[in-house]
Design a protein around this nucleic acid. Structure first.
Length: 619
DNA sequence: CAGTGAGCGAGCTTCCGCTTGACTT
């Protein structure tokens, strides 16, 4: 009899097959195998929210295949991912196998190296029922929210629209930011620069920073002219150059500060940081990043005749690195750059709260496969992404950059001018990146008390600017910081907003459409309770309690549903007259927001077609 | 008489999170 072992990803199955002997049959579940049915609600609210789980369409074949394989074995090891979703997948898989005929056990694989696999496979456990409960609870809640709110939109606006715990909050962010930008009142302010010259005729630029030791704000042209005026006149007796004209001016150096600073390297990539970096530096969309990363993960033929996986798993929220990979990176750095460039030998991973840590960080599988060596075998996009991942990982194991920061202050009367220069003393990890050039150079050997001749004042008019529109990068950042969505869904959240035509991509920006605005208005006016950032955060707290066995699924869902049903019933009520605008034509109907076939907003009387009042444009 | 178009009614749409490859453009 053989041992059947099931993982989620076929690539992992391939790796396992390589390291495990012939006693094992390795299969892959390709993610979830059971789910709520798509075409019906699938939850019996009256009967304790009993969910109806059915095989996912298209996976019947896979399921019968797994059953068939299990007939050759008396032990099944469920090695799905070590998180909430993975535990639920294991639970559903376990229901496929008759417990009387075989033993079904749970196994946790966090690293896909031969020794780690051998060690983990010995430590079998049972399925963690609480984790499964938490997953099922989340699934039920998302179904209730999504399949209740969406029909509201069909009725109010048009068919086929959708709403949900994640997508609707994301849409709200886009709309709020857009409104903030449209309503932004820019404010004028001025900055005063000053070109100065030393005794040795070295020139550099300083900026006015303080008046009487307080940070200075200059509002308009009158103020700045007044300041320049004051700076250009001074009492006759204090003029150090009485032989020169009154127009020649000086600043006196009052302070020189030198600080040592270090800049630590960034941790290796997670899904969100990879998506952000690839979007900013390579202009990849999140979905292009994920597709390309997937191809690097599945492997490329580097002319060996077989495929080599180049990177670890690309859907992760962890910056953890296996000890082996950590030490291999250190010896690579030592060989190529020298010992001084090696970072801490201790393998530290910052542990943020709320991460599920089922996978390592995204890193090259083998640090010795340099981007250069792969270039001829990769598509240009694959090469660019692999290069990014490789550099980020190797630099994360390197020593920090050491900088010296020099700040020079010079005064005239009550005004202080300032300039700062950062100089790299030791590049550390920055040796892997093109170093930013120092923009400002201050002459050497300046001393407190030195006199600087003012060559020219340069006043600059500036305006405060509104916050920028969301890009894919900043939206993913916001999703991660708010704890909404998971690494496997960041990309599809954006795709959903685009597919529903709630948003469009313009240059790198994500802009809400008219339809998106109308949908958002409808949702926030009726279901703000669900569409708040706080909602998911509250749900996560309760799901954690379920994972710890402190709260039951039914208790939580009952609590949630009692609030939810109130919100729904409130939304179903006819709007009060005071809340709705009465139709100016017939004086009977109310005005409703609608969307035309061309996607434009218009207002129409609720008594249409009896009353034909309509008005294009947003009200 | 055949073709057109207005009007009507029935049936459908949808969630989040885990995985790829088989499709079409």
């Amino acid at each position: 009899m053989k041992i059947l072992i099931i993982v989620e990803s076929p690539t992992k199955a391939k790796t396992l097959k390589k390291y495990l002997g012939n006693d094992y049959i390795v299969c892959s579940s390709y993610g979830h195998v059971f789910d709520l049915p798509e075409s019906e609600f699938g939850i019996n609210i009256q009967n304790n929210f009993e969910p109806k789980f059915v095989p996912i369409s298209g996976k019947q074949k896979l399921i019968s295949g797994l059953k068939k394989m299990s007939k050759e074995s008396n032990l099944v090891l469920l090695a799905t991912d070590a998180d909430r979703e993975g535990e639920a997948i294991s639970y559903h898989l376990s229901t496929l196998f008759p417990s009387k005929k075989m033993t079904v056990k749970r196994v946790i694989l966090k690293e896909y190296t031969p020794t780690a696999i051998q060690n983990s496979i010995q430590k079998t456990t049972n399925i963690d029922k609480n984790l499964v409960e938490a997953q099922i609870t989340r699934r039920i809640l998302d179904r209730i929210v999504g399949y209740t709110l969406s029909p509201f939109l069909w009725k109010a606006i048009q068919g086929g629209l959708s709403a949900g715990r994640v997508q609707s909050v994301t849409l709200k962010w886009l709309c709020e930011r857009d409104l903030e930008i449209k309503n932004f009142q820019k404010e004028e302010f001025w900055e005063l620069f000053c070109n100065v010259k030393t005794k040795n005729f070295e020139t550099f630029q300083m900026q006015l920073s303080k008046k009487n030791g307080q940070k200075i704000k200059i509002k308009n042209k009158e103020e700045i002219n007044q300041i320049i005026n004051v700076l250009q006149t001074f009492p006759e007796q204090s003029n150090p150059f009485p032989e020169r004209s009154r127009r020649e001016q000086i600043l006196k150096i009052s302070n020189i500060k030198e600080e040592k600073k270090v800049e630590k390297p960034y941790p290796p990539f997670t899904t969100s940081t990879l998506q952000k970096a690839a979007h900013i530096t390579l202009s990849f969309t999140t979905s292009k990043t994920m597709k390309t990363a997937q191809s690097l993960y599945e492997g490329v033929d580097l002319s060996h005749g077989y495929r080599t996986g180049l990177i670890t798993y690309m859907r992760t929220d962890s910056t953890r690195v296996s000890d082996k990979a950590h030490h291999l990176a250190l010896s690579y750095i030592k060989n190529v750059f020298g010992e001084k460039y090696c970072g801490s030998t201790y393998n530290i991973a910052s542990k943020k709260s709320g991460i599920q840590d089922a996978h390592e960080a995204i890193r090259p599988v083998d640090v010795n496969i340099t981007p250069e060596s792969t270039k001829d075998f990769l598509h240009p996009d694959q090469y660019k992404l692999y290069n990014l991942i490789w550099n980020r990982f190797v630099s994360s194991r390197m020593s920090p950059e050491e900088l010296s920061q020099i700040t020079v202050e010079a005064i005239k009367q009550e005004y202080t001018f300032e300039t700062t220069q950062k100089r790299s003393v030791f590049p550390g990890y920055k040796i892997l990146y093109p170093n930013k050039k120092d923009q400002i150079t201050i002459p050497e050997n300046l001393k407190i008390g030195d006199v600087l001749e003012i060559v020219k004042f340069i006043p600059e008019q500036k305006f405060t600017s509104p916050p920028p529109h969301y890009t894919e990068a900043s939206l993913v950042d916001k999703l991660e910081k708010t704890g909404i969505g998971r690494p496997s869904t960041y990309s599809s959240i954006i795709e959903t907003l685009l597919k529903r035509k709630y948003a469009i991509r313009k240059e790198k920006k994500l802009l809400p459409t008219d339809l998106g605005q109308v949908v958002n208005k409808e949702l926030t006016s009726k279901f703000l309770y669900i569409i708040e950032d706080k909602f998911t955060a509250k749900v996560e707290v309760e799901l954690d309690k379920i994972e710890e066995g402190k709260v039951s699924r039914i208790d939580f869902l009952t609590d949630f549903y009692n609030t939810f049903i109130n919100v729904i019933q409130e939304a179903k009520k006819q709007p009060k007259k005071s809340e709705k605008k009465v139709c100016p034509l017939c004086n009977e109907g109310f005005l409703n927001n609608k969307i035309s076939k061309k996607g434009k907003q218009f207002v129409i009387c609720s008594r249409f077609p009896m009353c034909e009042y309509s008005l294009y444009g947003s009200p």
